[in-house]
């Protein structure tokens, strides 16, 4: 049961009082409210109170840091608090579900990475599709990397793939978990190149790095930051990125272009989404503020320090990116035999 009523408290500022019995009923209530509130009045005052910025990742990860730096810059611009709330769990799908189901008034927005939007839907039963949220913008990407032990007899991507193709080749690589973006990124390349490597799933890139450095798996597969210092210290030989282009943080490492496999590119990227029915003026305000913030020197520096590449896209372009990636990764997951599993 949902009781919703509203009244004009101050001229030009509407507010409402609500009693929601269950969280997912909020969506219905909210769409009722959204229809009745004059959206012009809302835009003039937005944001009139603190905005919740939901991050479906744990505190301290790359996604969380980007969200916090962005929030700080946007706060100064819009003169309102953006409170970062970490809602991690189920590969980010838990928090994403909350963002999508939130009241579309612009006071709940979500800062996400691509995995819960384009990867998880292939292995988990999620309650959203690209039609149930709206992408506001995206900030850029970071590629995954495959590294071998320092003594591995290959010096570039070509030789690496050649070694994997050898008839007696029998190697293991660590990844971030089955059905995760990293695994799909790696398998997509292996498939295109026609090689087979035994995947060993770990709890995250840090754990993979630890097991790779200890010699328990042959190759490291994961994001750049955990392996970067070890590559610099000569403890790892990084041979192939999952992006088409090279990365300035690892200038010696080939991108997929070196193998003419540009089309198999899978990267990790970040962006802002809101529930579908957010009023247009609010959407515009958010898009403008976050695109400006992402272009600031302060944010550029934060991106560079994490080895990420700045590439700011607006809502429309981000939405297109999500849809293409969702389809492409769906095909990889299907060919790997990953299916939606029910208990």
């Amino acid at each position: 049961m949902v009781i919703t009523w509203q009244r004009e408290a101050l001229p030009g500022r509407s507010w409402e009082v609500r009693l929601s019995v269950a969280r997912h009923f909020r969506l219905i209530a909210a769409s009722l409210v959204a229809c009745s509130i004059s959206s012009i009045a809302l835009a003039q005052s937005y944001p009139a109170r603190p905005v919740s910025l939901i991050v479906p990742a744990p505190t301290g990860g790359g996604t969380d840091v980007f969200a916090r730096v962005l929030a700080e810059i946007v706060e100064g611009d819009l003169k309102q608090k953006f409170v970062v709330e970490n809602r991690s769990g189920a590969g980010g799908t838990l928090g994403t579900t909350q963002i999508v189901a939130a009241k579309p008034d612009g006071y709940t927005v979500g800062f996400i990475w691509n995995s819960p939007l384009t990867t998880s839907p292939h292995s988990l039963n999620v309650a959203y599709t690209p039609d149930s949220y709206r992408a506001v913008m995206s900030i850029g990407f970071s590629s995954y990397v495959l590294c071998a032990q320092p003594g591995f007899p290959a010096k570039d991507a070509q030789e690496f793939i050649a070694k994997l193709k050898a008839p007696d080749a029998k190697y293991t690589y660590g990844n971030d978990g089955i059905g995760g973006t990293m695994q799909l990124a790696a398998e997509r390349i292996f498939q295109s190149a026609g090689v087979k490597v035994r995947g060993i799933p770990f709890g995250g890139a840090g754990e993979t790095a630890k097991n790779f450095l200890g010699g328990h798996v042959d190759f490291y597969g994961g994001s750049l930051p955990p392996i970067l210092p070890h590559a610099q210290a000569g403890k790892a030989k990084c041979l192939l990125l999952t992006s088409a282009a090279k990365n300035p943080a690892l200038p010696e490492t080939d991108g997929l272009s070196a193998l003419a496999l540009d089309k198999a590119e899978t990267v990790l990227w970040w962006g802002l989404i809101v529930p579908k029915d957010v009023p247009e003026p609010v959407f515009e305000t958010l898009q403008k503020a976050f695109i400006t913030a992402a272009g600031s020197e302060k944010f550029k520096a934060a991106m560079a320090k994490q080895g990420a590449t700045l590439r700011v896209l607006d809502g429309k372009a981000t939405d297109a990116l999500i849809r293409t990636e969702l389809t492409a990764l769906g095909e990889v997951a299907k060919s790997l035999g990953i299916q939606k599993k029910t208990p």
């Binding site: 730096v69 930051p225 970067l228 210092p229 070890h230 610099q232 210290a233 403890k235 934060a302 320090k305």
Partner: peptide, 10 residues
């Protein structure tokens, strides 16, 4: 890392 310090062997 936000301050550009990369913990690790170096």
């Amino acid at each position: 890392t936000i301050h550009g310090v990369q913990p690790g062997p170096l």
